[in-house]
């Protein structure tokens, strides 16, 4: 397991490196001069030139690239030309909000999705199954921001139970949780739909296996067959695909942050695009990529842990 983990961790380094390069290139080909964007269209040529030098935009591209990597290794994400703030500080401020939102959403999805999926898979073609299938098809189809709007209409406007705007303060736990509830419930419902669907089909696949028939034939209790034979094996694809859906959920968190006006990475990114704040955009994309690489890594490690066959490949 140790060897496998080391190999897997080493594998993610080149990917991360290429991703960083890609982000660097994409941000450089964005239309418009960042210095002009920062100073406005009526700035004098001298002011623009001075800012270009300060931002290092007149350096050759390879030098800008090396500076970008060097700074990144030191946790320096640069200074926004628009706001004048250090980007790292801004990211540090909003990242906990995004993480809190998505982690709660993912947990919600697993906690409710797995039992729902199991019951649907075991009681195939019953009322429970139909209900679950309709629910998960709806969850698969609804855009996150629309679900958010509907929840706001019901739980903030019709019945004013939860606040619509902001994220509250971390120091005030009660307010923080009250602000967190609707946004993470939005993500949680989506994740529940994904997990339910996946668990159901995974259970159905496991139920068809020969070892399940053998277990049933030798007269084991249904319960024992279900827990020891079906669930253990059905868990493997749930973990593997769960990572994939966690990544989808991170994408959706952008929309949820916008609908609920919650501070977060997504809101920071969209704001940066509107203000043509390239340095912030670049950093946020880097952070997202790092999160995805970490999720993929964790998925594979857990995968190796529960399925001994994986390690030896």
């Amino acid at each position: 397991m140790f060897q496998y983990s080391v190999r897997r961790i080493l594998q993610s380094i080149p990917i991360l490196f290429i991703v960083l390069t890609l982000v660097f290139v994409v941000v450089r080909v964005l239309p418009g001069d960042p210095a002009v964007a920062a100073l406005g269209d009526y700035a004098t040529k001298e002011a623009v030139d001075a800012l270009r030098i300060k931002l290092g935009l007149n350096d050759p591209l390879w030098k800008q690239y090396l500076t970008f990597l060097w700074d990144l290794c030191h946790g320096d994400l640069g200074t926004s030309a628009i706001t004048g703030y250090g980007v790292a500080a801004q990211v540090k401020k909003v990242l906990p909000h995004t993480l809190e939102l998505t982690v709660f959403g993912i947990m919600f999805g697993y906690v409710f999705g797995i039992p729902l999926g199991i019951s649907a898979g075991v009681k195939r073609n019953t009322f429970v199954d139909y209900f679950n299938r309709i629910f998960s098809l709806l969850g698969l189809s609804v855009p996150a921001f629309y679900l958010g709007i509907l929840l706001i209409l019901v739980f903030s406007i019709q019945f004013p139970l939860f606040p619509v705007v902001g994220a509250g303060e971390f120091s005030d736990l009660a307010s923080n949780l009250r602000h967190l509830f609707l946004p993470s419930f939005t993500l949680g419902l989506l994740m529940t739909a994904y997990i339910t669907r996946m668990t159901r089909s995974s259970i159905l696949n496991a139920l068809r296996e020969d070892y399940v028939r053998t277990a049933q034939a030798k007269g084991l209790l249904e319960r024992v067959v279900l827990y020891k034979h079906v669930l253990r094996n059905a868990l493997i694809p749930i973990v593997a695909l769960g990572g994939l859906y966690a990544i989808v959920l991170i994408g959706s968190s952008v929309m949820v942050e916008i609908v609920f006006s919650r501070p977060g990475l997504g809101k920071l990114m969209v704001g940066a695009i509107k203000q043509r704040d390239y340095i912030t955009l670049q950093s946020v994309m880097v952070i997202y990529a790092i999160i995805v690489v970490i999720i993929n890594l964790l998925t594979d490690l857990v995968y190796g842990l529960i399925d001994p066959r994986i390690k030896y490949r």
């Binding site: 890609l22 994409v26 929309m255 990114m269 695009i273 955009l281 994309m285 990529a289």
Partner: peptide
């Protein structure tokens, strides 16, 4: 693999910005 390192929406937002 590299393209898939970004959630769909985040990739789409970045490309549209370009």
């Amino acid at each position: 693999d590299v393209l898939m390192c970004f959630p769909d929406l985040i990739l789409a937002i970045a490309i549209t910005a370009v």
